[in-house]
Amino acid sequence: MRSSEEPVVALRGGTATLGARPVLRGIDLTVARGEVVALLGANGSGKSTAVRAVIGQVPLTGGTLELFGTPLRRFRQWARIGYVPQRTTAAGGVPATVREVVSAGRLARTRLRPMGRADRAAVDRAIATVGLADRARDSVDALSGGQHQRVLIARALAAEPELLIMDEPMAGVDLASQRILAATLREQVAAGATVLLVLHELGPLEPLIDRAVVLRDGCVTHDGPPPRALGQHALPGHDHVHPHADTAAPVRTGLLS
């Protein structure tokens, strides 16, 4: 991390509304080159809106946003950004193979020209990185939830981006896939990638994270080292509701046994 370089993401005083409701109320979010930043917060805290504003999918009503030192309005180098949206499926209305879906990510580099040998190699590497090389020719309809998420990540990696932006990549992902995702991310970070992640809890990615930005009601309430306590339980915005608390394990007081 060289401090002389401009940050990869620089959002200052960002405000945004959904309908009439203010969702972001002046947030600052900077990500330096090579950093892994987690955006944490309870549901409705504005963390998804914040990343979607960073990639220009939610219009900012105020504040400034620069990507790689260029104001968003003039930013055109989208191939430098790999985006993993929050989805439960990689499938559409027509069957498609893993390779076909992942190849769509390469369009950030090829745009309107046909795919060359280097492009196909990049797609193969992306599929291999998430451990789906043996499923490349299978229909995405035949995959499990965690494998869908891996396809979406491979699609983002196919453009060989410098900045990875992921919206809840661990939501609904089985343990085996979580481990593979964590390993993929570790590899990318080791290779110099910058990562901005939306997470509900730190979970298995915790050791990778350099800095956590915690949102609450559209404001930043923490920006610094990741909260050390147990995952989301440590977050200021976390309400302690445990719907299963009364039906799960019986309370062992020792008096009855």
Partner: peptide
């Protein structure tokens, strides 16, 4: 047609 939002972020 597969994922409109993703396509926008690729700059298409």
């Amino acid at each position: 047609s597969q994922d409109e939002e993703f396509a926008r972020v690729t700059g298409l």
